[in-house]
Amino acid sequence: MNLDHTLELLRQGKHIPEETVYSLCLELQELLINEANVSYVDTPVTICGDIHGQLHDLLTLFEKSGGVEKTRYIFLGDFVDRGFYSLESFLLLLCYKLRYPDRITLIRGNHETRQITKVYGFYDEVLRKYGNCNVWRYCCEVFDYLSLGAIINNKIFCVHGGLSPDVDTLDAIRGIDRKQEVPHEGPMCDLLWSDPDDVETWSLSPRGAGFLFGKNEVDKFLHGNDIELIARAHQLVMEGYKEMFDGGLVTVWSAPNYCYRCGNIAAVLEIDDQLQRNYTIFEAVQPQDGVGNAIIPTKKPQMDYFL
């Protein structure tokens, strides 16, 4: 597999052969199996929220935030579903991870599961692009190996969804055998599904998975683990980011004009060596193909039909 060539194809949104995807996924398994449930990351680093298959916006993200050659990134999950280029977006991140293992940390989002991708687009996208679901299967195997969180300079905890009543300490997360489909309950589920809200204590989440947690829970977690900030994604923020609970938690959202219609802007959060927060916001731009022609993002139609 020629990584540069594959990267070029991906940037242009072109078809990647099944064998390439397979070997890429295998290599990623080997790489990710050596990563911790909560990866250690050093500053400076740029935290990115949901991507949701918006390949062209992901390319914009890299462009606006320094690029993977110069910048360290943490992606908070939800690479796939909704957008029309889930596969390309995810594979692009995998290729970067393979090329610059120390520059990219990939955290699992609630969409990185078999069950969710079957409903929200990734599975159908693969079926349309390949005529069978093999490639989806390969990617799902990689999902199982993704980290559950990251910790920056021991001070900033990054996770896709939020906190869990079963997780008081970061060490509690280390004890999870993460290589599994995201369960419907328990700490692993909560980390990927929970949301912050204006609540007194742990409350039922309207999502049907995870919990709602409030300032009390955040303060307790920050204090108990001696950290300053929880950086998470998981919820659309029209302004791209939103700090809550006196700055103890931030939601970062990185899919501009979500679903090609929400009209929101996107943001990434750069953490410098002094742990200062610096937000970069960006909008959806007219996507282009590899040679600079403007294109309209769309789904690939199904393959030939018979009867």
Binding site: L32, I33, N34, E35, A36, N37, V38, Y40, Y145, R174, G175, I176, D177, R178, K179
Partner: peptide
């Protein structure tokens, strides 16, 4: 000496 999936898996086993 590492913090990786293998250790997590064994930790779960022992737990």
């Amino acid at each position: 000496k590492k913090d990786n999936l293998t250790v997590s898996c064994i930790q779960d086993f022992c737990k």
